[in-house]
Nucleic acid binder design. Structure first.
Lengths: 234, 234
DNA sequence: CGGCCCGGAATGTGATCAAATATTTTCCAG
DNA sequence: CTGGAAAATATTTGATCACATTCCGGGCCG
């Protein structure tokens, strides 16, 4: 089968054959995560099956998996679509990440090695570069990888997986919001965060990431509140 | 297809045909949640397909879904099994529920109506009855429903779903632990919790549920630490 | 003890049937 | 005669299954 998208975060053994349903899953996941699928957009099994040149069973498995993760939504009848985020949902995501991110960052800070910090710093520099270039897609991917890297450093696989799953929820809307705001106006607290981590200041790192998360999601919240108020083209 | 287990929490419209993959999912989910599947036990697609008298496609969908929720584990090669919980995992689950449960309980307390409280109280009485009867399975189901009811009252669907998903992780081990301890020695803080909720004391309710959660999972942790130390029959 | 073979299990495909949506046709009121 | 709602039809899509294919693991033989 042909799979055009770059399979990012593919830490597979070099000889390990990855099954189609796994590839389709990653493909779709990236599509949702980086807003290539608009909120509310319908996702059909047969459409994907045809477009990706794969059978329907693997597509079906991938979709069920994404639904279980909250990346897609089962519309009651038998329709599947990209969820439309509401302000209430964002509020939930804010409180969740306001707990998860600081906690995981605290753990990551006490465990991070010099190489880990170097990797994070490198990611952050690439991120700045993407912002300077006005590369929205690059910004979204790098920001995700930056935070995901911290999750992994916390040595808490279950919590990391749950926190990671939260990103799928606001991915589509994040793209819309950032496109509306423009990449220039995307301040983050990554510098403070990295400095605190380098100093071994777990509480400081936690506090920095908390501000970063709050700032980012609050912007989503604002944008959603003003946007969906007047016009709601359902 | 024949489906032996009671489909609990099936709030389906009376005329709505529930697809097979959904039924299989609920069936398997209950099996994991209440420890009918032992930790480490292998789960095969064909085995389930034969045993449930269903095609393999619905079974595959259900399994992928459970894997995404962490109820089952993909063993790298193409094997699927019930996860074997480690002490580290339980530690993660403890901190997670120590945040989720109090937060959701707080929200639930401010929103609960008299009927809601009556329903919770009734559930708790059935729970006490199950304990008195030494009915382990009944205890596990009712305890799950009790806490799930609170999650739903919080009006935070995303957080409720995540919190609910955590139960799937310790379900199999909980059964083992409770069987080891005996149903008589299963104290809980439900009475304190209900009293605080009835009084509208959100902070008190949060505190009570926090103790309840900590107490329960700490027991799992202990049991796991002493049990898996000497013998680890992999 | 290592390589080979075979059974069984997972993966992948397409066909078939049912359900839901979209489209067209029909029919009646104004 | 026209507009529009309801009914009938057509098309798209989902659900399930049977089978072909691939692959892993365990047993057997040298």
């Amino acid at each position: 089968m042909r799979m055009t998208a770059q399979e990012l975060t593919s830490h597979d053994m070099p000889g390990a054959r990855v099954p189609a349903h796994e590839l389709i899953y990653r493909h779709l996941r990236a599509l949702v995560l980086f807003g290539d699928l608009a909120p509310g957009q319908a996702v059909t099994i047969q459409g994907l099956s045809d477009r990706l040149g794969a059978g329907m069973t693997p597509v079906r498995e991938a979709i069920r998996r994404l639904i279980a993760e909250g990346a897609l939504e089962f519309q009651g009848n038998r329709r599947v679509s990209v969820p439309r985020l509401t302000v209430e949902h964002v509020d939930e995501l804010i409180v969740a990440r306001q707990w998860f991110d600081p906690y995981l960052t605290e753990r990551a800070t006490t465990r991070a090695t010099a190489e880990d910090l170097a990797r994070l710093t490198a990611l952050d520099e690439m991120l700045d570069h993407a912002i300077a270039q006005g590369d929205l897609r690059g910004y979204l991917e790098l920001n995700y990888r930056f935070h995901g890297e911290i999750y992994n450093l916390a040595s808490a696989p279950i919590l990391a997986k749950v926190a990671d799953g939260l990103w799928l929820r606001f991915g589509p809307s994040l793209r819309v919001v950032c496109g509306r705001i423009g990449t220039r106006n995307l301040p983050d607290k990554h510098k403070d965060l990295l400095a605190a981590m380098a100093a071994g200041d777990a509480a400081g790192a936690a506090s920095a990431v908390r501000e970063d998360v709050t700032q980012g999601l609050e912007q989503v919240r604002e944008s959603l509140a003003t946007m969906c108020g007047p016009i709601d083209s359902a």
